[in-house]
């Protein structure tokens, strides 16, 4: 038996349900350090594994290569290089955005990692992979200890 012709499933015997739960996620030990430095000091913190010569951005509490705990955090520049970018014209519900949004993977200087973030103060046609960018922070009183404490990266 096929229900293909029934467009409204509520016309079939059914139960309404959902799978909603609410969450309050903890940032973790490394995340706590990273986001508090971002909020209070406008600083990006990284962790470094000397043995493997890897600087982790965002910082991790351990090196996933040699599996050593990384206890010390170091400040790195809040700037980097665009490794790749994309321009999005629609939101996830399919609605056209008032302004196209530029999203990029920014490799952070003096680290082996980077952040995905928005790019601002530049026209899409001027963008280039390899361009240098620097973080623009929210005003201090607006900062919440989250990735969005950086408003966007702009051309350096």
């Amino acid at each position: 038996m096929s229900f293909d012709k029934i467009r409204d499933p509520r016309k079939i015997r059914h139960q309404i349900g959902d799978m909603e739960c609410d969450y309050i996620y903890t940032a973790g030990v490394a995340g706590e350090r990273f986001y508090i430095a971002l909020r209070d000091e406008e600083k990006l913190l990284a962790t470094r594994c000397e043995k493997c010569n890897i600087t982790f951005m965002p910082p991790r509490l351990y090196c996933d290569n040699c599996f050593t705990e990384l206890a010390s955090f170091m400040e790195v520049p809040s700037k980097g290089v665009i490794e790749s970018y994309t321009i999005t014209y629609f939101d996830r519900d399919g609605q056209a955005l008032p302004e196209p949004e530029i999203l990029a993977f920014v490799k952070i200087d003096k680290t082996d990692g980077g952040l995905i973030h928005r790019i601002g103060e530049i026209k899409p046609e001027s963008l280039k992979i390899g361009s240098k960018v620097t973080a623009v922070f929210e005003a201090k009183k607006e900062r919440k200890g989250a990735l969005t404490d950086i408003k966007y990266f702009k051309p350096a």
């Binding site: 903890t26 940032a27 973790g28 030990v29 706590e32 509490l61």
Partner: peptide, 16 residues
């Protein structure tokens, strides 16, 4: 009941 460590960090401490 509630630990500061993230799930990844908890996994690391146990595995290590």
């Amino acid at each position: 009941r509630r630990l500061k460590e993230s799930g990844k960090e908890l996994s690391f401490y146990a595995a290590n």
